[in-house]
Amino acid sequence: MTAFVGTTAAAPGGTAPPPPPPARRRRWLPYLLLLPGGLWLLLFFVVPSVQLAGTSLYDRSGSLELGYSQAFAFGNYGDAIIAYWPHLVRSALYAGIATIICAVLGYPLAYFIAQKSGRWRNLLLVCVIAPFFTTFLVRTLAWKSILSDNGPVTGFFRSLPFFPDDFRLLATPVAVVCGLVYNFLPFMVLPLYATLERLDGRLLEAAGDLYAKPATVFRRVTLPLSMPGVIAGTLLTFIPAAGDYINAELLGTPGEYMIGNVIDSAFLVRLDYPQAAALSFLLMATILVMVFSYIRAAGTDEVV
């Protein structure tokens, strides 16, 4: 009780003080609360990850029926890189381009909803999440119709000068990136919205009063203040996009296949578990390296 009274007096106006220190007899309570969920994560996330690391070092001459022997075959990684480096590069490239386009498209939308939409704000937010209400696969298949060779979009480009008559969109890298942008755009918009909504409009007015041009206000005030949202959005877009293979499968050809397609077929078609596991770890490593160097460059630890 006394602890509570103490924090009340110390609470600065409006902002929430940190929770009070727990009483001694309740020390075990947080562990009890964490137990079921923690066990679940341990059993079905940590254990399989460790096992996957083990699998990636198995002797590849074994098979699922005969069993594998642990050979600490680090050569599996070399083999996987030599065989599939184009897919790894392609994954990073497509996901990177898609993330940049998402940021460019998502920023104005998030800014508009957060700062300019007034009483329509909630409805517009619902509209951003609304695409999730239709199944991911059904929406991606709809892109197949939109970009098809006989569709209006391709027809429009073909009617333009400088575009050849056999110009296509479907089954090209453009279609795959377009699908990735579409599928992960809300993951960019929502965190951007969350930071832009907290942005104090008076700061922008102050900058304007001090004769800053709108472009300068954006570059010097809005953008720096919204960096946490930009970083969170970038990561939330890039990570799933790099591992995605549905867009490449449905909108591309084997020439656009990403690392996810290779992992999927290694696990489910070729049944080459050691190589599939090695590729999974390479994908994780690629993502983690990019994420951490990005976080370092952006200079924040607030993501985790």
Binding site: F45, V47, Q51, G243, D244, F267, M284, I287
Partner: peptide
């Protein structure tokens, strides 16, 4: 932060 292919495949292996 784990791509779905990695999570799905490691669970399958388990």
């Amino acid at each position: 932060a784990t791509p779905e292919v990695v999570m799905g495949s490691s669970l399958l292996a388990l």
